[in-house]
Nucleic acid binder design. Structure first.
Lengths: 353, 353
DNA sequence: TCATTTTTGCAATACGTCTATCATTTTACT
DNA sequence: AGTAAAATGATAGACGTATTGCAAAAATGA
């Protein structure tokens, strides 16, 4: 490890070929005899040559152009995601990343599709989109792929579409984890679990619920109440939750696979004073779920770590743009928050490198 | 975002000064009139200039030379850490990172100190070391700082030393989290918690234990058994654990803040058949803790995410080497594993970018 | 105003890779 | 052997920044 690292010129000299030939080999331009190719590869091996990406990027005037498309609205989770993206954008500017963040109306697959079409002409290398089902979107995704633009799904996957990878948590696993925690919290005693979700048609919510069910089968002393569909709206969740708690006084645990948690907490606070509070598991650490944890109104929050998701989006899109093999993308593991391991700030801030 | 980004030449032209003057401003070389400096900064602002790090690194032939020092031994956790470091090293090679991983005898502060002294002469930019207390180490750390080498502590902090940052989990929080889980698993019923640690003199273990104690105070129905000192050895842990379980049949939960988990599981398996298994919380997801989770011999594993630690070490050392402000380093949040959210492979593999 | 100091401009070289062109050599095939 | 095709060599400019030495200009002070 003394002085300097070998350059491609060193490799060429050692292989007994010209720089041009060595370059043809390492950049796979073809038109190289098998014998020369082998000698170059041997020289690379022997010298421990590694391509200098700084020099390469400079020579190519490489600019990575990526876009992330998020649904609009006042959703606290996506607000957090947006903040993380803004920070990531600034951090990556000096390395010639052009990371734009676009917003489209939520659940509007037609608008999303036309927005994707717009990106195909914008000289973009890769796109990450929060998956929305729909034939228009699938068709737009296919057109994108045709235009050489790489596509990832973020947070929520979509089925048919031609996406390179999904970046997000495994929602079945998340539901199973919630179920395991609820099971533990009953310590073998009987109980009744009330599931809440946004809509049964939302894939991620349905997955979480099925994970919950699978694990609760381990504890026959636990029964499941009929699920509440809250449309991710605080008002609807609050009203339906009040009704459910009144109708069924035996409920010992609540799992909300969706949003609308502010209403859930309000309904809980309004329960009869003599009734013990059920064990409550929610998703996403944002201002109000954090507050509810701190004050002991709920017990646990599963957080899908948007920082990690953003980091993986950038890493994966970059790998795809470089035609490198993208790293294996295992699902992100949700972080489990209780009142005792809350990070200093509203949301956890991971570092990136 | 059409064509190309502004260069420092563009900035100079716009500011009405020469390239040399603009360069003096951005690189703080002094000898620039206040007026010129202001005009350059305005031009930078107006054009949105960002320094091209690829070009800069190329021109400077920058090589980041970092070293990580790990304790030797067959410890499964550090074996995992070593594997992650090896992978990180390969991944960073093309970006001109020279990341070496050294091994020193565990708990041998004299050898560690002399090893650190060796690094001071090795033209190294930064070092991360698993903290070991001791005046020799503190003195060596000071000499390192004097030689302009940045020092981080990793996994385990050390008190007096002159380190730039600590990268690792907050062990008090980890203990509190374990305590909260144990509390939940008792669901209000009485119980007795048996704490295990390597040694009371180990700072991280002691911190975890104090966190546990703090939270268990919330549940007056839970009492604490006298802690076992297992020296992180499976044999010692097994023997003492057998004795403790025999002596005190009322134990309902076990928390091992240290290592030696293989012995712990063996002792558990040897308990009288009629005795219900206590609720068990351990640290670090490695092959045998994972297996014990899967087979239902234990309930929960707190993992300190060595991948994240390695990523932060690299990011922080790089920032320090570049004389950039290092990002705020919040403690790493341990991941909570139960049998339902285990990653596909032996250890969780996060991606880095 | 003159001497001195400070500030600025100019020019050149280097970093390692990419890209392209053109001439030359080697190989393959009839 | 002769021709076509394939492979190789030589070379040069570009990318944006760092770094340096030296000359020229401007500001400062007496």
């Amino acid at each position: 490890m003394d002085g300097k690292l070998p350059t491609l010129t060193d490799v060429a000299r050692r292989a007994g070929v010209s720089y041009a030939t060595a370059d043809r080999v390492v950049n796979g331009r073809g038109r190289v005899a098998e014998k020369s190719s082998r000698r170059v590869l041997e020289a690379i091996e022997a010298l421990g040559y590694v391509r200098n990406v700084a020099a390469a990027n400079l020579a190519q005037q490489r600019i990575y152009r990526f876009a992330v498309i998020l649904p609009d609205g006042q959703n606290a989770f996506f607000a957090r995601m947006r903040a993380i993206l803004a920070e990531t954008r600034d951090r990556l500017l000096p390395e010639r990343f052009d990371l734009r963040v676009d917003t489209v109306p939520a659940f509007d697959s037609a608008t999303l599709a036309s927005h994707l079409d717009g990106l195909a002409d914008a000289d973009i290398d890769g796109v990450a989109v929060v998956g929305t089902e729909g034939p228009e979107v699938a068709a737009a995704a296919e057109r994108l792929a045709g235009a050489g633009v790489h596509l990832l799904t973020l947070v929520s996957d979509m089925t048919a579409a031609d996406r390179a990878a999904y970046v997000g948590i495994d929602n079945v696993v998340a539901g199973r984890t919630a179920g395991r925690m609820i099971l533990m919290a009953h310590a073998g005693r009987p109980g009744r679990v009330l599931p809440v979700l946004g809509a049964l048609s939302a894939r991620d919510h349905a997955d979480r619920l099925s994970g919950l069910r699978a694990v609760l089968a381990d504890g026959p002393q636990l029964s499941l109440a009929p699920e509440i569909e809250g449309r991710d709206s605080s008002e609807i969740v609050e009203r339906k939750m009040r009704d459910a708690l009144t109708a069924d006084p035996t409920i010992t645990a609540i799992y909300n696979a969706g949003a609308g948690n502010a209403g859930l907490v309000r309904a809980l606070a309004a329960r009869p004073a003599d009734r013990p509070r059920p064990f409550v598991v929610l998703h996403e650490l944002v201002a109000h779920t954090r507050a509810a944890l701190e004050t002991g109104q709920i017990d646990m929050v599963l957080d899908q770590r948007p920082e990690e998701a953003v980091r993986r989006v950038v890493a994966t899109l970059r790998a795809l743009a470089d035609r490198r093999p993208a790293e294996k993308l295992e699902p992100i593991l949700p972080t489990i928050f209780v009142k005792d391991n809350l990070p200093p700030q509203p949301g956890p801030a991971d570092t990136g490198d």
